[in-house]
Design a protein around this nucleic acid. Structure first.
Lengths: 208, 208
DNA sequence: TGCCTGCCGTGATAAATATCACGGGATAGT
DNA sequence: ACTATCCCGTGATATTTATCACGGCAGGCA
């Protein structure tokens, strides 16, 4: 846990010791599914290393990217979701190999009363996720596919800290709940505008 | 405050007494704007009577309905939003005349550590709003206008507890970020299917 | 009465997106 | 070398939604 001190600059030392003591550390592989709503969840999860994505699924295999969790981010979902979800689901999946800190929920409830900094951490987590959902809503509600695609690319460049995304049009289409052909055509236009360059197995972002 | 005891069956008596003491009661008129993100918010707000709607706005006057707050509901937003919002905004507006309980934020922070039931109330509030946002996302991401319209009508019937909605197509179009003509045609189809009846100045919901 | 104003309905058309159908690489396995 | 698989690009077409243009109806008001 000590190696991760820098991820939580605002948390008290005593709390960090407890996190080390009461939580357990869980390494996961890229592609692993970490949680799915509809399950009953008894522990919360904080990302220590790697990148995790959250997305929404519906019955017909439709998919919809919501947001990423970075090291230091807690999962609002694991506090939030319970049996209420039915036909559709939220899924968390590791994008890269990752390391998680897993803490039982009754533990975190104690911290809430004991440590003011934990309270701020939780409220901050909720706020951030709520904002990201709002931003997502903005984009699907108000914007066309081309703008949404650009936003998607920017977001992913930021999350992965690289200008070269090794990702297929098919995947992008899934996460935006569109179709491969549409993405293909829009991507071509982005390339013509000099905003991206299409590589053999990926996309280089030039200026967005 | 005592008249509102039944709205908060899970809260401790001591907490309720404090709410009465520290909060103040604010009656508002139908149509009043209660908060707008982008403002700095120093107090939270709980609905005691009436109906409040939250919606998203963008620069070009676009609007997008998010969810309703009913008596007993707290406003997650007032805990969440701060200066970060720029170009777009979330607005809370009273649908009917309403009564609010307004509490300074530093007060609620104390309650969080002092009263376990307050903690549950807050977490529950977040969970509910988060779920409603997810549901909203589902609808815009996966469904066509006709289904979204039906959902809109169902939601409003529930919120207003009446089968007769006195609302114009123009308003609905705004809240769904569509256009009057589209709603008009879809509504005609709903009427043909016997799902609604079109009244002089409103809509009667028959079976949805 | 005549004139606004706001809402509605509807046809015609345009724009955005989805879907279908096809062929063409590249890669891995046999 | 042959085949299967996966991804890509692209034309043709369908569907969904938005936009434009028009006229009608009702209420308020000079």
């Amino acid at each position: 846990m000590d190696n991760y001190r820098h991820l939580f600059p605002d948390l008290e030392d005593a709390l960090l010791r407890e996190m080390k003591e009461k939580g357990h550390i869980l390494p996961v592989k890229a592609g692993d599914t970490l949680l799915q709503s509809g399950q009953h969840i008894r522990s919360t999860m904080i990302v220590l290393e790697g990148l995790v994505k959250l997305y929404r699924e519906n019955d017909e295999g439709g998919e919809f990217f919501m947001y990423h969790l970075h090291p230091g981010d807690g999962c609002a979902l694991s506090l939030i979701c319970d049996r209420t979800f039915r036909t559709s689901a939220v899924t968390a999946k590791a994008v890269t190999d990752a390391v998680l800190l897993v803490v039982p929920l009754d533990q975190t409830e104690n911290w809430m009363r004991q440590y003011r900094t934990w309270y701020h951490f939780v409220v901050g987590t909720y706020r951030k996720r709520y904002e990201e959902l709002l931003e997502t809503i903005d984009h699907i509600a108000f914007q066309n596919m081309d703008e949404r695609l650009e936003f998607y690319l920017r977001r992913h460049r930021q999350a992965l800290r690289t200008n070269v995304l090794e990702i297929t049009n098919t995947q992008i289409a899934q996460e935006l709940n569109s179709s491969r052909e549409v993405i293909s055509r829009l991507m071509k236009k982005l390339a013509e505008d000099g905003k991206v360059r299409l590589l053999k197995n990926g996309i280089e972002i030039l200026k967005l």
